[in-house]
Amino acid sequence: MGSIENTPEGISSDDVIELTQALVRIDSSNPDFGSTPGPGESVIANFITKWLKHRDIECHWVESTPGRPSVVGIVRGTGGGQSLMLNGHIDTVTCLGYDGDPLSAEIKDGNMYGRGTADMKSGLAASMLALAGAKSKKLKGDVILAAVADEESESKGTEEVLRAGWRADAAIVAEPTEMALINTHKGFALYEVDIHGVAAHGSRADLGIDAVCKAGYFLVELDKHAQEIQHRFGDEKPETGAPNIHVGMIRGGEEIASYPATCSIQIERRTIAGETAETVRLELLEILQRLEATVPNFSFDLRSTFSRAPFHLPRDNDFVQLVSKHANQAMGVKPTIKGETYWTDMALMDEVGIPGLIWGPKGYGLHAKTEWVEVESVRQLASAFVGIVEDFCK
Score class of each variant (00 low, 15 high):
186 K>H: 00
292 E>Y: 00
293 A>T: 09
2 G>P: 14
175 E>V: 01
329 Q>Y: 05
98 Y>F: 15
228 E>N: 09
118 A>N: 01
116 G>N: 02
213 C>R: 13
286 E>I: 05
183 N>V: 11
238 P>L: 12
324 S>Y: 06
359 W>R: 10
176 P>E: 05
224 K>W: 03
364 Y>E: 14
346 M>C: 08
214 K>G: 01
42 S>Q: 12
346 M>W: 00
227 Q>L: 12
211 A>T: 03
43 V>H: 14
55 R>W: 08
43 V>R: 14
164 A>C: 13
151 E>H: 04
359 W>Q: 07
91 D>R: 03
305 T>Q: 12
365 G>S: 00
17 I>H: 00
197 G>K: 10
114 G>E: 05
111 N>H: 15
20 T>I: 03
357 L>W: 12
152 E>W: 02
248 G>P: 04
231 H>T: 15
308 R>Y: 10
315 R>H: 11
9 E>I: 09
6 N>L: 03
38 G>K: 11
286 E>A: 14
195 I>P: 09
8 P>C: 08
251 R>Q: 15
199 A>G: 13
267 I>T: 01
243 P>S: 07
325 K>A: 15
207 L>D: 07
18 E>V: 08
326 H>I: 09
95 C>Y: 03
51 W>N: 11
136 S>W: 02
339 G>M: 04
297 N>F: 12
161 V>G: 01
261 A>D: 06
373 V>H: 01
13 S>P: 03
227 Q>I: 03
124 L>D: 00
122 S>V: 00
359 W>S: 10
283 E>L: 12
167 R>S: 07
206 D>T: 07
128 M>F: 00
34 G>C: 09
265 I>G: 04
202 G>K: 11
248 G>V: 06
254 E>V: 15
296 P>G: 11
29 S>G: 06
153 S>G: 05
62 V>A: 00
365 G>I: 02
372 W>V: 02
88 G>P: 02
61 W>E: 11
27 D>K: 06
102 P>V: 10
308 R>L: 13
306 F>N: 15
290 R>M: 14
157 G>W: 00
69 P>I: 03
181 L>C: 13
9 E>W: 08
69 P>A: 09
339 G>N: 00
283 E>K: 12
140 K>G: 05
274 G>T: 07
307 S>K: 10
306 F>M: 14
355 P>Q: 00
164 A>K: 09
312 H>F: 11
352 V>F: 13
353 G>M: 10
12 S>W: 07
241 G>V: 03
309 A>Q: 11
134 A>S: 13
298 F>P: 03
136 S>H: 14
277 A>T: 07
277 A>K: 12
69 P>G: 08
5 E>S: 15
117 T>G: 01
161 V>W: 04
25 R>N: 13
378 V>W: 00
75 V>K: 06
64 S>Y: 11
342 Y>E: 08
124 L>M: 10
237 K>C: 04
363 G>A: 05
330 A>N: 04
100 G>L: 11
44 I>F: 04
32 D>E: 12
73 G>K: 11
93 V>Q: 12
220 V>C: 09
250 I>S: 04
29 S>Q: 08
289 Q>A: 12
159 E>V: 14
126 A>L: 01
237 K>N: 10
155 S>C: 06
364 Y>P: 05
339 G>Y: 07
324 S>H: 08
5 E>K: 14
91 D>A: 06
276 T>I: 10
111 N>W: 02
377 S>Y: 02
297 N>E: 15
